[in-house]
């Protein structure tokens, strides 16, 4: 543990955030976009835990981490229901197949 400092964790967190962001921009599959969102949330979570470990914050950060995990699960439950209905209508979860709404 000695060799790894706060900055290293924050950099990994930022990389996860970057991956999630890239996922949202590049992927066209609704489930893959959802995974990108999870990466964003987990990048933030890693930050909370790293700050909790390396500063005097202690339990606070870990409790936030737990809350975020539960919340991500709740969000995924609603998301998958929406994705399933989307599939029923379009027979695909490619978000580009939805073209009803435009100027």
């Amino acid at each position: 543990m000695d060799g790894v400092g706060l900055e290293a964790y924050l950099i990994v967190g930022a990389i996860l955030f970057g991956c999630g962001f890239a996922c949202l921009l590049v992927k066209r599959n609704a489930i893959a976009i959802l995974m990108g969102v999870e990466l964003l949330l987990n990048g933030a979570n890693l930050n909370f835990l790293a700050f909790a470990r390396f500063t005097s914050l202690g339990l606070d950060g870990q409790v936030i981490g737990l809350f975020v995990i539960v919340l991500a699960a709740a969000e995924a439950a609603v998301a998958l229901a929406i994705a399933l209905n989307f599939y029923n209508n379009h027979l695909s979860i490619d978000v580009d197949s939805a073209k009803e709404l435009k100027d």
């Binding site: 949202l24 609704a30 976009i33 959802l34 969102v37 609603v78 998301a79 929406i82 994705a83 209905n85 989307f86 209508n89 978000v95 939805a98 073209k99 009803e100 709404l101």
Partner: peptide, 11 residues
């Protein structure tokens, strides 16, 4: 249309 709107808003 409504589903597309919801999916877009959700993501």
């Amino acid at each position: 249309a409504a589903q597309e709107a919801t999916t877009k808003y959700f993501l």
